[in-house]
C-alpha cells in the first residue's frame, strides 16, 4: 500500500501541474478543435451518412502524433532542468514509483481530453442508431494508443533536459510506430520484401492493432501489444534514469 500512496502523491502533483499552468487549457482546446475539424470537415462525418464514429477515430493516430508528445515532453526533462529530480529521487520513493506516478498522471490527463469528446458520441446517437459497443471499443483503443505514445514521450523526456529535443525524438519514434503498418508503406515494402518480413514490420505498428478496436473488436492480442509497448518504454525510462546517475 505504501508504494501506491507514493504513486498517488506523485500523480496528484503532476496532474495539478497541468492545471496550474496554461498547458492544460491550451491542450484541451486545441485537441477538441482539431478532433472536431478532422471528424466533421476532413472526415465528412455527415456526408458519409453512417451511424458510426469511424471518421472520428481514423484520425487519432495522426492527431496524437503531435499532441501526445506535446503533453508528455516535460515529464522528466522539466524535472531535470529545475533540478527537482534530485529532490524527488532522494525522497523515500523508488524510481519506478516516480515513473509510474508521472506516467499515470499524464495518461489520466489525456483520458480527460478524450472524455471531453463525448459530444460526438451524443451527436451520432441523436442522428442515428450506432453500435455503442463499437464506439466504446474505439474509445478504449484510442486511450491505449495515447498511452503508448505517452510512454514513448516519457522515455524521450528522460533522455534530455531540453523539451524541444524530447518532443522531436518522440514524434519521430511515434511516426515510425504508425508508418510500419501504414498501407502505402506496407505496399511499398511488399514490392521488395517477402510477405513474412512485411508482416513482422507491420506487427510493430500501432495502426495494425488500432484497426481492430475501430471495428469494435477487443482482441486481447491488441490490448497486449499496447500494454507491452507501454511497459517496455517505461522500463527503458527507468534504465535511462538509473544510468544517468551511474556516471
Amino acid at each position: 500500500m505504501n508504494s501506491w500512496a507514493n504513486i498517488r502523491t506523485i500523480m496528484k502533483r503532476e496532474l495539478a501541474g497541468y492545471f496550474t499552468s496554461p498547458i492544460a487549457y491550451v491542450f484541451l482546446v486545441i485537441f477538441l478543435l482539431l478532433t472536431g475539424f478532422f471528424t466533421f470537415t476532413i472526415g465528412n462525418f455527415f456526408e458519409r451518412g453512417e451511424a458510426s464514429l469511424v471518421s472520428f477515430f481514423t484520425w487519432h493516430p495522426w492527431l496524437y502524433l503531435f499532441l501526445v508528445p506535446a503533453a508528455g515532453m516535460r515529464l522528466w526533462s522539466e524535472e531535470r532542468r529545475l533540478g527537482t529530480m534530485e529532490l524527488l529521487l532522494t525522497m523515500p520513493v523508488t524510481n519506478w514509483q516516480a515513473i509510474v506516478g508521472k506516467f499515470l498522471a499524464s495518461w489520466l490527463f489525456l483520458a480527460l481530453a478524450l472524455a471531453l469528446t463525448f459530444p460526438v458520441a451524443i451527436t451520432v446517437n441523436y442522428f442515428g442508431d450506432p453500435d455503442n459497443g463499437v464506439i466504446f471499443a474505439g474509445y478504449v483503443g484510442s486511450l491505449m494508443l495515447a498511452g503508448s505514445y505517452l510512454a514513448v514521450s516519457c522515455m524521450t523526456s528522460a533522455m534530455t533536459r531540453n523539451q524541444v529535443i524530447s518532443f522531436i525524438l518522440s514524434v519521430m519514434i511515434c511516426l515510425f510506430l504508425i508508418l510500419a503498418g501504414y498501407t502505402p508503406v506496407t505496399d511499398l515494402l511488399s514490392r521488395f520484401a517477402s510477405p513474412v518480413v512485411v508482416d513482422i514490420v507491420a506487427a510493430f505498428s500501432v495502426m495494425t492493432h488500432f484497426e481492430g478496436f475501430q471495428r469494435g473488436v477487443l482482441d486481447t492480442r491488441d490490448v497486449a501489444f499496447f500494454a507491452s509497448v507501454i511497459g517496455f518504454m517505461l522500463f527503458v525510462t527507468g534504465v535511462i534514469i538509473r544510468n544517468q546517475r551511474a556516471g
Binding site: R13, A16, G17, T20, S21, L82, G83, T84, E86, L87, T90
Partner: peptide, 14 residues
C-alpha cells in the same frame, strides 16, 4: 535523511 540539494530546487508552478 533530510536533504537540501545545491541551488535549492523546487517545482516552479507550485
Amino acid at each position: 535523511i533530510g536533504y537540501l540539494p545545491e541551488n535549492a530546487p523546487g517545482y516552479a508552478d507550485m
